[in-house]
Computed example of a mutant assay.
Amino acid sequence: MEVIDDGVRIRVPGEKLRSILAALSLSVGRSVSRDELIDELWGEEPPNSAKNSLHGHIARLRRVLVAHGGKATLRNVIQTSPTGYILDLPEENIDASRLFQLVFRADATSASSPQEAVDLLNEAVSLWCGPALIDAGNGMICQVAYTQLEEVRLGAYERLFDLRLRLEHPRAVIPGLDQLHARYPLHERFCEQLITALYLAGRQADALNTYHRTREYLSQHLGLQPGNGLRDTFQDILRQAPHLTKQY
């Protein structure tokens, strides 16, 4: 987790402080109840002093923002509500919110302005600097958010490379797809896109070999065969289906 104010990076020490800030950031502008925050910090077995401890953590978090950011007004970023606490910032100041907004805008413009959609998706995936919320504890809010954010990220990459395959020469997108497929070997859509790019670049043998390696990997690690989408693309490549070149 990272906080930046006017170019100044603010380190938030302590997992519990980061957990609180993460939970508030994921509901930016809306109140997160004290009970939700207590569950996030201590799970099903909170201490008897949980409410007082939460109040103390909030006070410490405000002090950290002021001390490390050098502005007394930063304490007002965390507001107290009748039921809990609110992170009082615009949504666009939170990377997670920006990610959703950028992907939504890309989807809305992909048909009419594919290059604009590519730019938006590139901006979306560039927000990532590692696994989301990895240092913000194991509370349910952060765990659910991690899963959701990872799904949106992978979906953004899928959309991005679909568009790039339509706009660029297939050879240009092969390195990026190769890296994604190596990093996520169980994510079949990346393999499907990669073998399509290889085929369109005149590398049919490499496309078929990539498919067979993926099929073996899925069988060994999951005991499964490739899904319909990947199998259909493989068959299209085998028979050199005309629609592949027309589609891209």
Rank of each mutant, 00 (worst) to 15 (best):
A59S: 12
R60Y: 06
L61S: 00
V64Y: 11
L65P: 08
V66N: 04
H68I: 01
G69K: 12
G69R: 11
G70Q: 10
A72T: 03
L74A: 03
R75C: 00
R75K: 14
V77I: 15
S81F: 03
P82V: 05
T83G: 01
T83K: 03
I86C: 01
L87R: 08
L89N: 08
L89A: 09
P90Y: 11
E91S: 10
E91C: 00
D95S: 13
S97Y: 09
R98L: 09
L99C: 05
L102W: 14
V103T: 11
R105T: 04
D107R: 15
T109M: 13
S110L: 04
A111E: 12
S112Y: 11
S112K: 14
P114C: 03
Q115G: 01
E116V: 12
V118R: 10
D119I: 05
N122H: 07
N122C: 06
N122T: 05
V125H: 04
L127S: 02
L127F: 04
W128T: 09
W128M: 03
C129H: 03
C129P: 00
L133N: 02
I134T: 13
G137A: 00
N138S: 14
G139V: 05
G139A: 10
I141E: 05
C142A: 15
V144C: 02
Y146W: 11
Y146E: 03
T147K: 07
E150R: 12
E150Q: 15
E150N: 09
E150V: 14
E151H: 05
V152R: 13
R153C: 05
R153M: 07
L154V: 05
G155K: 14
A156M: 01
A156W: 03
E158P: 06
D162V: 10
D162E: 11
R164V: 02
L165Y: 10
L167Y: 13
L167P: 10
E168W: 08
H169S: 13
P170A: 08
